Lab assay of single mutants.
Amino acid sequence: GLPEGWEMRFTVDGIPYFVDHNRRTTTYIDPRTG
């Protein structure tokens, strides 16, 4: 799974992105792969 505090969501286009609730940021880069 994802690191603690992270969540995976999808855009309206079906593109996955990642929400970091710890820092309240979003990124398209998987936190597991950097």
Results as ranks from 00 to 15, higher is better:
Arg32Tyr: 04
Thr25Tyr: 15
Arg24Gly: 15
Phe10Trp: 14
Gly5Glu: 03
Phe18Thr: 00
Phe10Arg: 08
Thr11Trp: 02
Phe10Ala: 04
Met8Leu: 10
Met8Phe: 06
Tyr28Leu: 12
Pro3Ser: 04
Arg23His: 15
Glu4Ile: 12
Gly5Ile: 05
Ile29Gly: 05
Tyr17Val: 08
Phe10Pro: 00
Thr33Tyr: 10
Tyr17Trp: 04
Val19Asp: 01
His21Leu: 10
His21Gly: 07
Thr27Gly: 04
Tyr17Ile: 09
Thr27Gln: 08
Pro16Ser: 05
Thr27Phe: 07
Trp6Arg: 01
Arg9Ala: 06
Tyr17Arg: 00
Arg32Gly: 03
Asp13Val: 08
Ile29Arg: 11
Arg32His: 03
Val19Asn: 00
Trp6Val: 05
Asn22Arg: 09
Gly34Thr: 13
Asn22Ser: 10
Trp6His: 00
Val19Met: 09
Pro3Leu: 04
Tyr17Glu: 05
Glu7Gln: 10
Phe18Asn: 01
Arg24Ala: 14
Asp20Asn: 10
Pro31Leu: 01
Gly14Trp: 06
Arg23Ser: 15
Asp30Arg: 01
Thr11Asn: 09
Asn22Pro: 08
Met8Val: 07
Val19Pro: 01
Pro16Lys: 09
Glu4Ser: 14
Val12Tyr: 13
Arg23Asp: 11
His21Ser: 09
Phe18Pro: 00
Arg9Glu: 02
His21Asp: 07
Asp13Leu: 12
His21Ile: 11
Thr11Pro: 01
Val19Leu: 11
Thr11Lys: 02
Phe10Gln: 05
Thr27Met: 05
Gly34Gln: 14
Asp30Tyr: 02
Val12Ser: 13
Phe10Gly: 01
Thr11Ile: 00
Thr27Tyr: 07
Phe10Asp: 00
Arg9Asn: 04
Tyr17Gly: 00
Asp20Lys: 06
Leu2Ser: 03
Gly1Met: 14
Thr33Asp: 12
Pro31Trp: 00
Thr26Tyr: 15
Leu2Val: 03
Asp20Arg: 06
Arg24Glu: 13
Trp6Ser: 01
Gly14Ser: 06
Tyr17Met: 06
Thr33Glu: 12
Thr33Gln: 11
Ile29Thr: 11
Gly5Asn: 08
Gly14Asn: 09
Phe10Glu: 03
Phe18Leu: 01
Asp30Ala: 02
Asp13Ala: 14
Leu2Thr: 02
Val12Gly: 09
Pro16Phe: 05
Thr27Pro: 03
Arg23Trp: 08
Phe18Lys: 00
Asp30His: 05
Arg23Gln: 13
Thr11Val: 01
Arg9Gly: 04
Trp6Thr: 00
Thr27Glu: 03
Gly5Thr: 05
Asp30Pro: 05
Gly34Leu: 15
Asp13Pro: 02
Pro3Tyr: 04
Ile29Ser: 08
Arg9Tyr: 08
Thr26Phe: 15
